[in-house]
């Protein structure tokens, strides 16, 4: 189970929206394999009846009143955009 293949690495890179070179695939396969193999250590533990911890404090979902308030305006929100046009973010074509 600790083996990870080059094909898996390419698939994961696609899911993570990373473009990786063949050289990186090679390196990543080795490094991820090592880390995952190390993580197999956790299988020494029987956790059959253990509840997972998603959060250390017993927090409940927090709601606040949905009142409008001053925040960022449209121009400011576009200020750091790499590309914008007519008050909107501009991106390359989505459809081929």
């Amino acid at each position: 189970m600790s083996e990870i293949s080059k094909e898996q690495v390419k698939h994961v890179a696609h899911l993570a929206r990373l473009a990786i070179t063949e050289e990186e695939v090679e390196k990543m396969t080795k490094q991820l394999g090592d880390i995952i193999e190390y993580a197999e250590l956790l299988n020494d533990l029987d956790t059959e009846n253990v509840e997972p911890t998603t959060h250390v404090l017993n927090l409940k979902n927090v709601m606040r009143k949905d009142n409008p308030r001053e925040w960022i305006n449209k121009e400011d929100a576009l200020n750091n955009a790499p590309d914008k046009k007519d008050g909107q973010f501009r991106v390359p074509s989505i459809l081929e």
Partner: peptide, 25 residues
């Protein structure tokens, strides 16, 4: 990459959820 792998279909229970349980311990 590691995180995407651990959360990906087929591996979620074996890695991510397992780690959450160990966190409890």
């Amino acid at each position: 990459m590691l995180g995407t792998f651990a959360l990906s279909s087929g591996y979620y229970d074996a890695y991510y959820k397992k780690a959450q349980k160990v966190r409890t311990l």
